[in-house]
């Protein structure tokens, strides 16, 4: 059986920064208000010439060698063999916060109600039923796609675009397409 590694293609060229994906996640899991499994990161003007007009929509990157898994003292993180999804087992978690400190992408977050960590599950329960993850389903412009990183041609996509933490050895399952600017006609006033 060939290996599968699911991952996200963040197409910032198409992304309209509508926050739909992030809210679709809240709609599905109703995490406490401050807990956001998926977040939109606005790009600053050095990456896209207008602030808050380019975005990276990021959640857990389901890394090949997850930092969270390496940090967890109780073995709450497992990486599924069948599709590479990194799953956090709430029952095992003791809320030490070490995964939160360790993940350079900010995926695990502290749930103040449960006093445990949690993160994007890639909707594995939905995947197992043949459904799309909530965020991917919700995207109105197909700017957020789920791909099998073992099979898909990723050669034209960026692994570490500007504004995304460069890491070595973790190999996050996420690839990017950068936003583009239109031709701009505007009058500069004195």
């Amino acid at each position: 059986m060939s290996r599968i590694q699911l991952g996200f293609h963040i197409n910032a060229k198409k992304c309209i920064g509508c926050f739909t994906c992030a809210m679709a996640c809240k709609n599905m899991y109703h995490q406490p208000v401050a807990v956001l499994w998926r977040k939109l990161y606005p790009l600053d003007e050095s990456i896209y010439p207008f602030s808050h007009r380019g975005f990276y929509s990021l959640a857990c990157n389901h890394c090949e060698t997850p930092a969270c898994q390496a940090a967890c003292p109780v073995g709450a993180y497992t990486k599924r063999v069948r599709d590479g999804v990194v799953i956090h087992d709430q029952d095992k978690c003791i809320g030490c916060g070490n995964c939160i400190r360790s993940c350079p992408f900010g995926a695990p977050q502290y749930n103040p109600v449960l006093r445990k960590a949690e993160k994007c599950s890639l909707c594995w329960q939905r995947l197992d039923q043949g459904l799309k993850p909530a965020c991917v389903l919700s995207c109105p412009v197909e700017a957020l796609e789920l791909k099998d990183f073992c099979k898909a041609d990723l050669s034209s996509l960026l692994a570490f675009p500007p504004g995304f933490p460069v890491t070595s050895g973790i190999n996050p399952s996420v690839r990017f397409t950068l936003p583009q600017s239109p031709c701009i006609v505007r009058q500069e006033m004195p």
Partner: peptide
């Protein structure tokens, strides 16, 4: 305004 839609256009005229 340079709207989010403007950012996705081929040409933006202010």
């Amino acid at each position: 305004l340079f709207t989010q839609t403007a950012a996705k256009a081929d040409l933006y005229c202010q």
